[in-house]
């Protein structure tokens, strides 16, 4: 059911045209943050206004949309954005990664490998990787222009000096095609290797900060590191307690006040489909009707 009072996908045509031009320039200059005239959306900043605008500019009536928040399809942010586009664009929705043509995500890349024809839209709070090191936009813009990323390496070095390892665990900066250092949004660094060489188009939207950037398919994105302290895509050293997956990113769940805890896949669709296929973890029970 589409709300007839709104234009297709909520935004007016000229706004979508402006966003589309920004997306195309972003695709042509991988990793560069294209300024765009971000609109107010019917949700607060920090709830994915940038991602929603990019999704609105990309959606076609035939799309199947999936929205995830930290890997989960069933959290408030994901449910409300999914309903928003069901109502304003009339698109089909799904929770299955493989069935979706457009996936809007907050802070995760799905475990299931993406395919050609899919678009992954990230919600980005702070698009500028150098912002916490240099607060002035005029300066960070000049640093990108001059490819002056020494400050970022100093930050990673200070991590090592202070903690004995690179302690940055999310929002881990990548260098795109040997040129721009890019903030991959606050995805865990476990997901960083999936940024590079991905078959899907990856688009990043920051609403409050008014920036759009992109990674075309099969693009090089190298996590910054040092020869003697190489990048490690870390995760909790457990298997999922529900589905037994050993190589998926895990959430830690406190289960009582005695220190008991369990680890479960952050990607609910991945975990659910594994359980449906009969995989059972340490604390899991076979699903009703499962094998």
């Amino acid at each position: 059911m589409t709300e007839q009072a709104y234009n297709f996908a909520y935004l007016d045509e000229q706004t979508k045209t402006m966003i589309r031009r920004a997306i195309l320039k972003g695709v042509a200059i991988p990793g560069y943050q294209v300024p765009f005239a971000s609109r107010e959306m019917p949700m607060p900043y920090g709830w994915g206004t940038g991602g929603v605008q990019v999704t609105a500019a990309c959606l076609v009536p035939e799309d199947t949309l999936k929205v995830i928040d930290q890997g989960a399809d069933d959290t408030t942010n994901a449910v409300s954005i999914r309903r928003f586009f069901q109502r304003t664009a009339g698109v089909a929705v799904t929770e299955a990664t493989t069935e979706a043509t457009v996936i809007q995500t907050r802070h995760r890349i799905p475990e299931t490998a993406l395919a050609e024809g899919q678009i992954l839209v990230y919600q980005v709070p702070i698009p500028e990787p150098l912002r916490f090191l240099e607060p002035r936009e005029t300066e960070t813009r000049k640093m990108h222009e001059l490819e002056d990323y020494g400050l970022m390496h100093v930050k990673l070095y200070e991590d090592i000096a202070r903690h004995g390892q690179i302690a940055t665990s999310y929002d881990y900066p990548v260098k795109v095609e040997g040129r721009y250092v890019m903030d991959p949004s606050p995805i865990p660094k476990f997901d960083n290797p999936k940024l590079a060489g991905n078959a899907a188009i990856q688009l990043f939207g920051a609403g409050r900060e008014q920036r759009i950037y992109a990674l075309p398919p099969y693009t090089e994105a190298i996590s910054l590191d040092f020869d003697d302290y190489p990048f490690v895509a870390s995760k909790a050293d457990h298997a999922c307690d529900l589905c037994g997956a050993a190589a998926s990113y895990l959430d830690e769940v406190i289960t009582d006040d005695q220190g008991s805890r369990m680890f479960v896949c952050s990607d609910t669709d991945f975990c659910g489909s594994r359980r449906a296929a009969g995989h059972v973890g340490r604390l899991g029970t076979p699903l009703a009707g499962g094998k």
Partner: peptide, 19 residues
Amino acid sequence: TAPQQSARAFRAALEAMAR
């Protein structure tokens, strides 16, 4: 029908520029 037709056209233009 500009909203739908321009949306489909943009998706083709996006895929073309991205690939």
